[in-house]
């Protein structure tokens, strides 16, 4: 019988011993940080990674400088996670907010698209539907298999990334990907000057480099901050669900649902399952659609 008495707990916290219950990481941090941060005396209640409620001086909430993820670290991924995405085709009406947000955040320029919204039609009698596609972060990634220099790799959290500091630009991965998810910087990419000096990490995919491959990265930089990828948050129709398969939960911002139930109840499928690539992106079939189909196919490529 493990019943927790709320009163003793409450007193415990009230006595200001809360800090003692902080996870070891945070305690250790205090040791490092105590003299560098001026405490304001204003406290805020927060949840530590261990699920403890702790009170922390508000000074610690001030923006902490972005910490650079080393290339080595970005090869391993976020421990204990298996990221997964579900795309509800019934809700997609080709607003392309996902596409625009992705383009903007990854500085894709005029010819590059990580995320495409494609017009699909299963057969000539079926109504077409809109299908957002991107890298599916396959569990048996044919693109990673063929890379001669370990420039593209699959991480423990399921994400497939590219290290453009390593890539030799052979483009073998592009032909190996049956979903045409990868793009190439054929010429010197144009981006704002301040970006050129930004610390590069495979997790952000910026700044892009000429002669190398890039693609949708599942925004691990956002995920590390506990936020969802840009396409997910940009979609006003809640088409994208994103989450951790290990937690069996995905969220589209508005609601959080169990992944297994969602796929079971709505007949989730993966695009071209017979390729054997085992994508980490699932689709919910475009049945009982929220919108009538409207043909306004779009391409940014000028040719």
């Amino acid at each position: 019988m493990t019943a927790t008495d709320q009163n003793s707990r409450r007193n415990f916290l009230k006595k200001g011993l809360g800090i003692a219950a902080v996870s070891s990481a945070v305690t250790a941090l205090h040791a490092f940080q105590v003299d560098s941060v001026e405490e304001t005396g204003e406290k805020v209640k927060l949840l530590s990674p261990e699920g403890e409620i702790v009170e922390i001086d508000i000074a610690y909430l001030k923006p902490i400088p972005e910490v650079n993820i080393s290339p080595d670290e970005s090869r391993h991924g976020i421990p204990g996670r298996r990221f997964v995405m579900v795309i509800d085709l019934a809700q997609c009406k080709n607003l392309r907010k996902c596409h625009d947000a992705c383009d903007k955040m990854h500085h894709c320029g005029p010819e590059k698209e990580f995320l495409k919204v494609l017009k699909m039609q299963n057969n000539t009698l079926a109504t077409p539907f809109w299908q957002p596609t991107m890298c599916f972060h396959c569990d048996e990634p044919p693109c990673v298999k063929v890379c001669p220099v370990d420039a593209t790799f699959k991480r423990e959290d399921g994400i497939v990334l590219i290290d453009t500091d390593r890539c030799i630009g052979c483009r073998f991965c592009m032909v190996a990907c049956p979903y045409s998810a990868r793009t190439f910087d054929w010429s010197e990419p144009a981006f704002p000057l301040e970006l050129a000096h930004q610390h590069y990490s495979p997790e952000t995919s910026v700044p892009a480099k000429m002669g190398t491959v890039s693609k949708c990265d599942f925004c691990p930089d956002m995920v590390r901050k506990g936020e969802m990828p840009h396409c997910v948050t940009a979609c006003p129709n809640g088409v994208f669900y994103f989450g951790d398969e290990n937690e069996d939960a995905v969220s589209n911002g508005a609601e959080t649902v169990r992944l297994s139930e969602l796929l079971r109840d709505r007949s989730g499928y993966r695009y071209m399952e017979d390729m054997g690539t085992r994508p980490r992106v699932y689709y919910l079939p475009p049945v009982n659609r929220a919108f009538p189909f409207q043909d306004d196919e779009f391409t940014k490529h000028k040719g």
């Binding site: 941090l29 490092f32 927060l46 910490v67 506990g226």
Partner: peptide
């Protein structure tokens, strides 16, 4: 290791803010 800890801390804070 300091960097790692700071990062952990940042992450936990941000997670918590969004959750609370």
């Amino acid at each position: 290791s300091t960097i790692r800890l700071i990062r952990l801390f940042t992450k936990s804070l941000l997670v918590s803010i969004s959750l609370c």
